[in-house]
Protein backbone atom coordinates (compact mmCIF):
# COMPACT_ATOMS: atom_id res chain seq x y z
CA UNK A 1 0.00 0.00 0.00
CA UNK A 2 1.13 3.53 0.60
CA UNK A 3 2.11 5.89 -2.14
CA UNK A 4 0.91 3.95 -5.16
CA UNK A 5 -2.54 3.60 -3.68
CA UNK A 6 -2.74 7.30 -2.78
CA UNK A 7 -1.65 8.38 -6.24
CA UNK A 8 -4.19 6.03 -7.79
CA UNK A 9 -6.86 7.63 -5.62
CA UNK A 10 -6.08 11.22 -6.54
CA UNK A 11 -5.69 10.35 -10.24
CA UNK A 12 -9.09 8.71 -10.36
CA UNK A 13 -10.67 11.51 -8.32
CA UNK A 14 -9.26 14.10 -10.73
CA UNK A 15 -10.46 12.07 -13.72
CA UNK A 16 -13.88 11.57 -12.22
CA UNK A 17 -14.42 15.30 -11.61
CA UNK A 18 -13.19 16.25 -15.08
CA UNK A 19 -15.24 13.69 -16.96
CA UNK A 20 -18.37 14.33 -14.90
CA UNK A 21 -18.33 18.08 -15.48
CA UNK A 22 -17.73 17.99 -19.20
CA UNK A 23 -14.04 17.64 -20.09
CA UNK A 24 -12.98 16.03 -23.34
CA UNK A 25 -11.75 12.42 -23.25
CA UNK A 26 -8.24 13.20 -24.42
CA UNK A 27 -7.83 15.77 -21.63
CA UNK A 28 -8.82 13.23 -18.97
CA UNK A 29 -6.48 10.57 -20.34
CA UNK A 30 -3.56 12.97 -20.76
CA UNK A 31 -3.98 14.49 -17.28
CA UNK A 32 -4.14 11.10 -15.56
CA UNK A 33 -1.16 9.73 -17.44
CA UNK A 34 0.90 12.82 -16.68
CA UNK A 35 0.02 12.76 -12.99
CA UNK A 36 0.90 9.07 -12.64
CA UNK A 37 4.16 9.48 -14.57
CA UNK A 38 5.21 12.49 -12.51
CA UNK A 39 4.84 10.31 -9.40
CA UNK A 40 7.55 8.12 -11.03
CA UNK A 41 5.41 5.14 -12.00
CA UNK A 42 6.04 3.34 -15.23
CA UNK A 43 3.87 1.54 -17.77
CA UNK A 44 1.01 4.03 -17.29
CA UNK A 45 -2.12 3.40 -19.30
CA UNK A 46 -5.46 5.12 -19.17
CA UNK A 47 -8.60 4.30 -21.08
CA UNK A 48 -11.62 6.59 -20.86
CA UNK A 49 -15.07 6.38 -22.35
CA UNK A 50 -17.85 8.84 -21.61
CA UNK A 51 -19.11 6.66 -18.72
CA UNK A 52 -15.98 5.27 -17.09
CA UNK A 53 -12.23 5.56 -16.54
CA UNK A 54 -9.66 2.73 -16.36
CA UNK A 55 -6.17 3.48 -15.07
CA UNK A 56 -3.27 1.07 -14.64
CA UNK A 57 0.41 1.55 -13.76
CA UNK A 58 3.41 -0.33 -12.42
CA UNK A 59 4.79 0.68 -9.05
CA UNK A 60 8.10 -1.15 -9.18
CA UNK A 61 9.41 -3.80 -11.50
CA UNK A 62 8.89 -6.71 -9.10
CA UNK A 63 5.32 -5.96 -8.09
CA UNK A 64 2.24 -6.55 -10.17
CA UNK A 65 0.52 -3.67 -11.94
CA UNK A 66 -2.15 -1.67 -10.14
CA UNK A 67 -5.40 -1.34 -12.03
CA UNK A 68 -8.61 0.40 -11.01
CA UNK A 69 -11.66 1.89 -12.61
CA UNK A 70 -14.40 4.37 -11.76
CA UNK A 71 -17.83 4.55 -13.23
CA UNK A 72 -19.30 7.99 -14.06
CA UNK A 73 -23.06 8.12 -13.80
CA UNK A 74 -23.88 11.81 -14.03
CA UNK A 75 -22.81 14.02 -16.86
CA UNK A 76 -23.20 17.64 -15.77
CA UNK A 77 -21.85 20.86 -17.20
CA UNK A 78 -19.54 22.97 -15.04
CA UNK A 79 -16.42 23.99 -16.90
CA UNK A 80 -15.06 25.91 -13.89
CA UNK A 81 -14.42 22.63 -12.12
CA UNK A 82 -12.63 21.21 -15.15
CA UNK A 83 -10.41 24.29 -15.18
CA UNK A 84 -9.73 24.01 -11.44
CA UNK A 85 -8.75 20.33 -11.70
CA UNK A 86 -6.54 21.19 -14.66
CA UNK A 87 -4.74 23.73 -12.50
CA UNK A 88 -4.27 21.24 -9.62
CA UNK A 89 -2.89 18.59 -11.95
CA UNK A 90 -0.48 21.10 -13.49
CA UNK A 91 0.82 22.05 -10.04
CA UNK A 92 1.06 18.39 -9.03
CA UNK A 93 3.03 17.45 -12.15
CA UNK A 94 5.47 20.34 -11.67
CA UNK A 95 6.05 19.22 -8.09
CA UNK A 96 4.47 22.19 -6.29
CA UNK A 97 1.89 20.00 -4.54
CA UNK A 98 2.37 16.87 -2.48
CA UNK A 99 0.00 13.93 -2.84
CA UNK A 100 -1.75 14.94 0.37
CA UNK A 101 -2.25 18.57 -0.68
CA UNK A 102 -3.49 17.54 -4.10
CA UNK A 103 -6.02 15.23 -2.48
CA UNK A 104 -7.30 18.03 -0.23
CA UNK A 105 -7.62 20.43 -3.15
CA UNK A 106 -9.45 17.89 -5.32
CA UNK A 107 -11.88 17.00 -2.55
CA UNK A 108 -12.56 20.70 -2.05
CA UNK A 109 -13.26 21.09 -5.79
CA UNK A 110 -15.55 18.06 -5.84
CA UNK A 111 -17.70 19.40 -2.99
CA UNK A 112 -17.58 23.09 -3.94
CA UNK A 113 -20.85 24.75 -4.95
CA UNK A 114 -21.63 26.07 -8.43
CA UNK A 115 -19.55 29.04 -9.56
CA UNK A 116 -22.70 30.97 -10.34
CA UNK A 117 -25.85 30.69 -8.22
CA UNK A 118 -28.76 28.85 -9.78
CA UNK A 119 -30.96 31.95 -10.10
CA UNK A 120 -28.20 33.65 -12.09
CA UNK A 121 -28.09 30.66 -14.45
CA UNK A 122 -31.86 30.94 -14.99
CA UNK A 123 -31.54 34.68 -15.67
CA UNK A 124 -28.65 33.99 -18.04
CA UNK A 125 -30.80 31.49 -19.91
CA UNK A 126 -33.39 34.21 -20.29
CA UNK A 127 -30.84 36.71 -21.58
CA UNK A 128 -29.44 34.16 -24.04
CA UNK A 129 -32.94 33.26 -25.23
CA UNK A 130 -33.93 36.91 -25.69
CA UNK A 131 -30.68 37.68 -27.52
CA UNK A 132 -31.01 34.78 -29.91
CA UNK A 133 -34.65 35.51 -30.66
CA UNK A 134 -33.46 38.93 -31.86
CA UNK A 135 -30.49 37.54 -33.78
CA UNK A 136 -32.68 35.00 -35.59
CA UNK A 137 -34.88 37.75 -36.94
CA UNK A 138 -37.30 38.72 -34.18
CA UNK A 139 -38.05 42.30 -33.22
CA UNK A 140 -37.39 44.24 -30.02
CA UNK A 141 -40.89 43.43 -28.77
CA UNK A 142 -40.16 39.70 -29.00
CA UNK A 143 -37.28 39.82 -26.55
CA UNK A 144 -39.42 40.02 -23.41
CA UNK A 145 -41.62 36.96 -24.13
CA UNK A 146 -38.51 35.05 -25.27
CA UNK A 147 -36.85 35.97 -21.97
CA UNK A 148 -39.78 34.67 -19.94
CA UNK A 149 -40.11 31.46 -21.98
CA UNK A 150 -36.37 30.74 -21.82
CA UNK A 151 -36.27 31.26 -18.04
CA UNK A 152 -39.22 28.90 -17.77
CA UNK A 153 -37.59 26.14 -19.84
CA UNK A 154 -34.35 26.51 -17.88
CA UNK A 155 -36.18 26.17 -14.56
CA UNK A 156 -38.12 23.14 -15.81
CA UNK A 157 -35.03 21.33 -17.11
CA UNK A 158 -33.08 21.88 -13.88
CA UNK A 159 -35.94 20.92 -11.57
CA UNK A 160 -37.01 17.86 -13.57
CA UNK A 161 -33.46 16.51 -13.85
CA UNK A 162 -33.36 16.50 -10.07
CA UNK A 163 -36.27 14.05 -9.84
CA UNK A 164 -36.34 12.11 -13.11
CA UNK A 165 -33.79 9.43 -13.83
CA UNK A 166 -34.33 9.75 -17.57
CA UNK A 167 -32.45 12.79 -18.67
CA UNK A 168 -34.12 13.15 -22.03
CA UNK A 169 -37.55 13.33 -20.40
CA UNK A 170 -36.46 16.50 -18.60
CA UNK A 171 -35.40 18.10 -21.86
CA UNK A 172 -38.63 17.00 -23.50
CA UNK A 173 -40.64 18.57 -20.67
CA UNK A 174 -38.56 21.76 -20.78
CA UNK A 175 -39.05 22.19 -24.51
CA UNK A 176 -42.77 21.50 -24.11
CA UNK A 177 -43.26 24.04 -21.31
CA UNK A 178 -41.04 26.67 -22.97
CA UNK A 179 -43.02 26.34 -26.17
CA UNK A 180 -46.35 26.45 -24.33
CA UNK A 181 -45.39 29.64 -22.48
CA UNK A 182 -44.25 31.21 -25.74
CA UNK A 183 -47.51 30.36 -27.50
CA UNK A 184 -49.51 31.65 -24.53
CA UNK A 185 -47.60 34.95 -24.40
CA UNK A 186 -48.12 35.54 -28.11
CA UNK A 187 -51.79 34.64 -27.68
CA UNK A 188 -52.29 37.34 -25.02
CA UNK A 189 -50.51 39.86 -27.24
CA UNK A 190 -46.90 39.97 -26.05
CA UNK A 191 -44.63 39.80 -29.08
CA UNK A 192 -45.62 38.93 -32.59
CA UNK A 193 -43.07 36.54 -34.15
CA UNK A 194 -43.98 33.20 -32.57
CA UNK A 195 -41.26 31.24 -34.39
CA UNK A 196 -38.44 33.46 -33.18
CA UNK A 197 -39.75 33.47 -29.61
CA UNK A 198 -39.90 29.67 -29.55
CA UNK A 199 -36.37 29.40 -30.98
CA UNK A 200 -35.15 31.77 -28.28
CA UNK A 201 -36.82 29.73 -25.55
CA UNK A 202 -35.07 26.59 -26.83
CA UNK A 203 -31.54 27.97 -27.14
CA UNK A 204 -30.56 27.40 -23.46
CA UNK A 205 -31.29 23.69 -23.96
CA UNK A 206 -28.86 23.28 -26.88
CA UNK A 207 -26.41 20.45 -26.04
CA UNK A 208 -23.30 22.56 -26.62
CA UNK A 209 -20.92 20.60 -24.39
CA UNK A 210 -21.57 17.07 -25.76
CA UNK A 211 -21.65 18.39 -29.32
CA UNK A 212 -18.27 20.12 -29.15
CA UNK A 213 -16.71 17.29 -27.17
CA UNK A 214 -17.98 14.69 -29.65
CA UNK A 215 -16.15 16.45 -32.48
CA UNK A 216 -13.00 16.81 -30.40
CA UNK A 217 -13.05 13.18 -29.26
CA UNK A 218 -13.57 11.78 -32.73
CA UNK A 219 -10.75 13.89 -34.10
CA UNK A 220 -8.26 12.94 -31.41
CA UNK A 221 -8.96 9.24 -32.03
CA UNK A 222 -11.18 8.44 -29.04
CA UNK A 223 -13.72 6.82 -31.29
CA UNK A 224 -15.82 5.03 -28.67
CA UNK A 225 -16.22 8.15 -26.52
CA UNK A 226 -16.81 10.38 -29.55
CA UNK A 227 -19.59 8.25 -31.01
CA UNK A 228 -21.35 7.89 -27.67
CA UNK A 229 -21.22 11.62 -26.99
CA UNK A 230 -22.50 12.27 -30.48
CA UNK A 231 -25.41 9.93 -29.77
CA UNK A 232 -26.09 11.83 -26.55
CA UNK A 233 -26.15 15.16 -28.37
CA UNK A 234 -28.41 13.73 -31.07
CA UNK A 235 -30.85 12.27 -28.54
CA UNK A 236 -30.98 15.58 -26.67
CA UNK A 237 -31.75 17.47 -29.86
CA UNK A 238 -34.40 14.95 -30.82
CA UNK A 239 -36.11 15.16 -27.44
CA UNK A 240 -36.14 18.96 -27.65
CA UNK A 241 -37.60 18.74 -31.15
CA UNK A 242 -40.31 16.28 -30.11
CA UNK A 243 -41.23 18.37 -27.07
CA UNK A 244 -41.72 21.45 -29.20
CA UNK A 245 -43.49 19.42 -31.90
CA UNK A 246 -46.00 18.23 -29.32
CA UNK A 247 -46.83 21.70 -28.05
CA UNK A 248 -47.19 23.07 -31.59
CA UNK A 249 -49.45 20.18 -32.59
CA UNK A 250 -51.69 20.80 -29.58
CA UNK A 251 -51.89 24.59 -29.36
CA UNK A 252 -51.30 26.07 -32.82
Amino acid sequence: MGKADDVMDICLLAGEIMLKYGAETYRVEETLERMAKSASFSNVHCFTTSTGIFLSFEETKEKEDLMQMVRIDDRLQDLSKVTAVNQVSREFVSGQLTVEEAKQKLTAIASSPLTYPLWLIHIASGVAGAGFSYLFGGGWADMMPAFIAAVMSSIVVVEFERYLKVRFAAEFAAAFSGGTIAIFLVFIGMGSNLDQIIIGSLMPLVPGVPLTNAVRDLMSGDLVAGVSRGAEALLTSLSIASGIALTISIFV
Partner: peptide
Amino acid sequence: ITYFATVAFGIIFSIPK
Protein backbone atom coordinates in the same frame (compact mmCIF):
# COMPACT_ATOMS: atom_id res chain seq x y z
CA ILE B 1 -26.64 41.44 -28.36
CA THR B 2 -24.35 38.56 -29.39
CA TYR B 3 -21.88 39.66 -26.73
CA PHE B 4 -24.45 39.55 -23.95
CA ALA B 5 -26.01 36.30 -25.20
CA THR B 6 -22.59 34.61 -25.33
CA VAL B 7 -21.69 35.80 -21.84
CA ALA B 8 -25.05 34.41 -20.71
CA PHE B 9 -24.17 31.08 -22.30
CA GLY B 10 -20.84 31.20 -20.48
CA ILE B 11 -22.78 31.45 -17.23
CA ILE B 12 -25.04 28.54 -18.26
CA PHE B 13 -21.96 26.37 -18.85
CA SER B 14 -20.30 27.79 -15.66
CA ILE B 15 -17.06 28.79 -17.32
CA PRO B 16 -14.55 30.41 -14.93
CA LYS B 17 -15.14 34.09 -14.11
